[in-house]
Design a protein around this nucleic acid. Sequence first.
DNA 1: TTCGATATGCTCAGAGTGAGCATAGGAGGA
DNA 2: TCCTCCTATGCTCACTCTGAGCATATCGAA
Lengths: 326, 326
Amino acid sequence: MRVDLGLNAVIVAVTEEVPRILTVRRSRQSGAAEDALPFGPLEPEKDRTLDLALRRWVSEQTGLDLGYVEQLYTFGDRLRDPREIRGGPRMVSVAYLALVREVSVHRDARWRDWYEFFPWEDWRAGRPAAIDRFVAPALDAWVASAPDPLLRKERRQRADIVFGLGGVGWDGERVLERYELLYEAYLVPEAWRDRDETGGAAEERRPAPPEKPELLPGRPMARDHRRILATALGRLRGKIKYRPVVFELLPPTFTLLQLQRVVEALAGVRLHKQNFRRLVENAGLVEGTGRQDAQTGGRPAELFVFRREVLRERPAPGVGLPGVRR
Amino acid sequence: MRVDLGLNAVIVAVTEEVPRILTVRRSRQSGAAEDALPFGPLEPEKDRTLDLALRRWVSEQTGLDLGYVEQLYTFGDRLRDPREIRGGPRMVSVAYLALVREVSVHRDARWRDWYEFFPWEDWRAGRPAAIDRFVAPALDAWVASAPDPLLRKERRQRADIVFGLGGVGWDGERVLERYELLYEAYLVPEAWRDRDETGGAAEERRPAPPEKPELLPGRPMARDHRRILATALGRLRGKIKYRPVVFELLPPTFTLLQLQRVVEALAGVRLHKQNFRRLVENAGLVEGTGRQDAQTGGRPAELFVFRREVLRERPAPGVGLPGVRR
DNA sequence: TTCGATATGCTCAGAGTGAGCATAGGAGGA
DNA sequence: TCCTCCTATGCTCACTCTGAGCATATCGAA
């Protein structure tokens, strides 16, 4: 079936312990401007593969040459784009995740702290204030507003699981589930914007609450881009646990604390320093260079490099089925 | 950009310790018939989301009502379909993985053992004969045929890593990497078929060897469907390690050995029985029913059910960063 | 010299894993 | 009836991995 296909890029860098993503400004019909993810077409004549297409237009638009690139997910829900309402074609977009070392970029592209979009995701300084102050009360109200007890119970359980409330533990990877819950509960601006722009077509399936609740902190994005971003964040958080992708975000040599800070920035939690060091060292992920970094503010730290050989030695650094017979 | 978008389904079931996928017959231009994955369109008017589209046409074509469905990957390389050569539109397809309990299906749809397509992936009875007899020698020849020593070394390393040769351990999840290596080395029929059908257009980037080597055992599929299948198998092997998806393939009650056999069928390895039991029990994944199954051929086994509450209790059954501070 | 930082080494208890021994409880045949 | 074969289930034990924290090293600045 003929559809309109495009590509979105979530381009991630980490500097100064801040995870950042590359955004562009996009003006809405109403004249207001929103953040959006870089977007570009697949040009069937030019681009042999989808990821070559992505590299081409990212380079053209921002001047960035991408290194590590991974396909994330394909978004194709109806009404992703309000133009569909007016009889436009179905808009489908394939989202990619790219990791780079931060560099300056062209024109209106700009780096933004990804926790601006998801303030509840950063637990590095302890439980985020946004959760107790805004998210939990808003979810309580959403639970209470369910029309019957059964639905109320389901909502309660779902809220508890995805936000780690009521004794359930926090799972850093459930970024998308959290965003989707907030969207469904009409707690993020995008939910109201989409309702208005589609003339209520979205409401058939999910009625909006009669009164507009206080919306949560967290910067909205164009269309479903915050959903795409949430997908990327969750995927990346999962991936760093079993594939050595962090090194794509670091300079060729780094101290172990720098490495730890980058992991922490992505995972959104603080780690135990000595254990982290022990882990990466006897996983064979890094190799000392003998050189030192004197800029630490304390005892100089040794500089390390990523040991590429680890890919050869260990099948998958850090997994395992119960008891594989050998 | 306008492209032709379709959906492919990898529908998996496990019966009698055999993992199976649903295939359809598709006749080629030449008149020969090939196995293909079920394929269907997105109908922008009817289908609100991609996975609803999938469920709709799978049900129409095969009579199956899918339960668990997960998006896999979007395939959009040029020349996926030979019709493009003759000026047709770019063919892009979004592949999905679905898990079902095996049931009978309509017409020409048929269940096939997935190890027929990848004989080197089944290690349950020990190291597959296909590896030592066919794969390793063929790869040796491919390595030796590299024009220069550097490329030779790279090929050797790659072959060793993905097939666990030369002292490297076998990684069950690298199914796709293995298939892609074989394709690039012109060791599977699809590589030659694609070269011929595209009139050599594919050869510009990857010259075929002057002589056609002995091809490897393993049933080929239409277009890039074996690549899609490899993606699915690898993904599923990864997923069973940290999400309780196996239960989608089992009846509501089952013995622990049945559960183990299904996991083994997917993972392609044998597991240690007592340890497997210990793991699933104190992970809280299952719950005894008190009832017994007398059909075991030995001491009757207790019947268990999946404990859905586990989703609530444990954030992600079986992962972890080095040392998350609490 | 001392203090404040960070780096790095080391210990120790407890949980988790791999491997295997031992016993339980069915079916079927001698 | 009893023996054998089969699978189920319980339990042990050594070893590794992890979480947590103490201790020491080495820099710059006060």
